[in-house]
């Protein structure tokens, strides 16, 4: 099956200044494709080019070179394509003098809907995002989470096949995040394709099927979580590790980590079986307190590819 969204060698170069030839490459040869019915996590530190890519997909800015295809078509601004895309921008403002239902009716009209059908659809999406109770309240009185849900609601109005969400969980409290995740997961279950950009990795990790990691405008890694998070193995917690024991463990390709008083975390490579690891500990004369299977987190992958966890080094990578 053809991918729903496809990007081929996308480049975006900004000319800085009026006459100087200085240019900034915001995107450089970005390739990815998103399949129907999956949640695609589009990751990267702030300023890595996530929003640039998304704006291109929506025709808000134009690529310097490269092509994009949505539903196999290049005229991504066509009406029928637009009808099938819902978009939630990052940190957008919604007019405060309108009520929840009113703002949705306004957006609905932009889709060409009207009358009873529009009202019915507005009620439906309000129900989906769990905002029915606030439909007659002015946006002025909404919390950040409620606004984000209204944002999601407007993206859902046309019952789109594709949802593009830019930082959907930013600034939400844990409960709201959980609810947002649930909504997104259920949307995926309805067969929609979701593109979620985020710099909050554990959020994305929890729901994404596939991810791409972008840094400095370049695509670093892309693939399913299963493919990417290959490093599996064991973690063992042992008591006191002396320098001698440490050398022995290292020789056996086991790494020590998190050395706290009284306990040390050992990382066992995936090539080593549990039995072999136990044996190595025994030889080193260590007392094992716990053994657990281990899978690599997205954060670790991120650090591995980008060099620093997002948020901490974002300013440096942005340039």
């Amino acid at each position: 099956m053809a991918p729903v969204i496809e990007a081929l060698d996308l480049c975006k170069t900004y000319e800085v200044g009026l006459f100087s030839s200085q240019s900034v490459e915001a995107l450089k040869d970005v390739n990815f494709s998103i399949n129907a019915g999956e949640i695609f996590g589009y990751l990267g530190p702030n300023g890595s080019g996530k929003t640039t890519t998304i704006k291109m997909l929506l025709g808000l800015i134009f690529p310097t070179s490269g092509t994009m295809k949505i539903l196999g078509r290049e005229d991504i601004a066509a009406y029928d394509i637009r009808m099938k895309i819902g978009f939630l921008p990052e940190g957008a403002y919604y007019p405060e003098f309108l009520k929840g239902a009113e703002i949705l009716r306004f957006y609905g009209k932009l889709y060409g809907m009207r009358g009873k059908a529009l009202n019915a659809r507005v009620d439906e999406v309000l129900d989906v995002v769990g905002m029915t109770h606030a439909r007659k309240r002015l946006l002025r009185g909404y919390s950040k989470g409620m606004r984000q849900r209204i944002g999601l609601a407007q993206a859902l109005l046309s019952d789109p096949e594709i949802l593009i969400l830019d930082e959907p969980t930013t600034g939400l409290d844990p409960v709201a995040r959980k609810e947002m995740r649930d909504i997104l997961a259920s949307l995926r279950d309805q067969g929609k394709t979701l593109l979620i950009s985020s710099h909050e990795l554990n959020e994305v990790e929890l729901i994404s099927d596939r991810v791409a990691i972008l840094d400095g405008g370049q695509m670093r890694v892309t693939g399913t979580l299963d493919d990417l998070l290959t490093e599996r193995g064991l973690t063992m917690v042992v008591e006191e590790v002396g320098p001698e024991a440490k050398a022995k463990l290292n020789a056996a390709n086991i790494q020590t980590d998190d050395e706290a008083t009284g306990r040390v975390l050992l990382r066992v490579p995936s090539s080593m079986s549990t039995y072999e690891a136990m044996e190595a500990c025994k030889q080193a004369g260590l007392n094992v307190t716990s053994i657990a299977p281990r899978r690599e987190t997205l954060e670790e992958l991120f650090v591995r590819t980008v060099g620093a966890p997002p948020g901490e080094e974002s300013a440096a990578t942005a340039s």
């Binding site: 704006k55 929506l58 025709g59 808000l60 009406y79 029928d80 637009r82 009808m83 895309i85 978009f87 921008p89 957008a92 403002y93 919604y94 007019p95 957006y107 932009l110 889709y111 060409g112 944002g151 407007q154 046309s158």
Partner: peptide, 9 residues
């Protein structure tokens, strides 16, 4: 606001 509007048909 223009983003939400111009992403519509």
């Amino acid at each position: 606001v223009v983003y939400t509007i111009l992403s519509k048909p």
